[in-house]
Design a protein around this nucleic acid. Structure first.
Lengths: 166, 166
DNA sequence: GCTGAAATCGCCTAACG
DNA sequence: CGTTAGGCGATTTCAGC
């Protein structure tokens, strides 16, 4: 599906749209040094081939009343594939769970959660997460403060790498 | 700074732009049931007041050659504020570290990292992260597969909550 | 204050070279 | 990939609720 490999213009487009996803196409085109029509064609292709998975406004959870962010490290009793998938599907159904990643090592999953306040998170924790089938252990850590939250991919690292390879 | 409280139209705008940050303003206006000019004014206000922190294309790291995603749990020797800030600034300077959150409990920080491959991550780990001043312990877990990665805030939970309060 | 309607301006996006 | 060109969206202005 990814099909074609990207040239530097494509990578510049991705870097620009990662930085400002609402930029107009003419602005984008001028920044990457081509005219608008081919720029738009490239963007459409990048979307179709999956390089761009979507565009999202970055909304401040705290200002909207979600005061609490929590990381939850989850261990399961069974790591059989069917049981892993079952737990992933549970996570997808829980709106307070925003991210769920399967890990190697002792922790099976890490979950990034938000909640309006501590008590509603505790309710979720006791009534849903720790109560779920196959869940063996849950360790939670409150986010005291977010120190860095950059989107996606470091394009400068990518360019460095490509430069060294030739 | 947040100043005014949001009405339901504002929250619908946020929910829509979180779902598709590149939607045109007329499309957005029709979805939330008002005409384009007031809709645009609301969006600008939401941006100025910090409810919308930015717009970002969601770029696929793997297709761009970042095959490895890692969570790193970091413990520090000193939790004095100056030392915490010093570590946060290090993280901000490391491009492979995409997120850094200060936590309560035994773990002081959790880092979400990306890297082109395992060996470049190992290099970063040994030469930079574990070598950094004040770092006491680092535990890393590779992401086997991402199971859920939803942006921001669950607006359905927010609306439920507001409905119950009246 | 807010919204909506009209008008202008600029962008998007075909078709073609 | 660039240029042209027609249609649509964005944005200001102004009037009404």
């Amino acid at each position: 599906m990814p099909g074609t490999k990207l040239d530097q213009t494509d990578r510049m487009i991705l870097a620009q749209l990662q930085g400002d996803g609402r930029m107009t196409n003419v602005e984008l085109a001028s920044r990457v040094g081509i005219s608008a029509p081919p720029c738009l064609r490239r963007v459409r292709t990048l979307e179709e081939q999956g390089y761009i998975r979507g565009y999202h406004a970055d909304v401040d959870p705290r200002l909207l009343g979600f005061e609490v962010q929590v990381f939850a490290m989850v261990g399961l009793h069974s790591q059989a594939e069917a049981d892993l998938v079952a737990f992933e599907n549970l996570c997808r159904a829980w709106p307070l769970v925003r991210e769920c990643h399967m890990l190697n090592g002792e922790i099976d999953f890490i979950l990034k959660c938000v909640a309006p306040d501590l008590s509603s998170f505790q309710s979720f924790l006791t009534e849903h997460l720790t109560a779920a089938a196959n869940v063996a252990s849950v360790r939670t850590s409150l986010v005291i403060r977010p120190a860095k939250d950059d989107p996606g991919v470091p394009f400068d690292v990518l360019e460095d790498r490509l430069a060294k390879e030739g």
